[in-house]
Amino acid sequence: QEPLTASMLAAAPLKEQKQLLGERLYPLIQALHPTLAGKITGMLLEIDNSELLHMFESPESLHSKVEEAVAVLQAHQVKELTTK
């Protein structure tokens, strides 16, 4: 897959831009967290498209965002278990 550029993204309709970004994000996140990849990708897709494009070029910032999302997910799961 060739890298997703800002102009490619801008050419796509707004509704499809998030899907395009998600298609690129999903495999990267799946490599880190196979079971939570769909949910984490959904959470990261709420970030601005311009920042998401930047994250493709800097794995460290992508990983830190993924870990932040995982921390929130796990805290939420613990909270749900304790309330049951």
Partner: peptide, 19 residues
């Protein structure tokens, strides 16, 4: 803008899983 992970964000479903 600080990233605040939203626990209620819709799960992303990649194209190959949608088919």
């Amino acid at each position: 803008k600080p990233f605040v992970p939203n626990i209620n964000a819709a799960e992303f479903i990649p194209g190959f899983l949608q088919k």
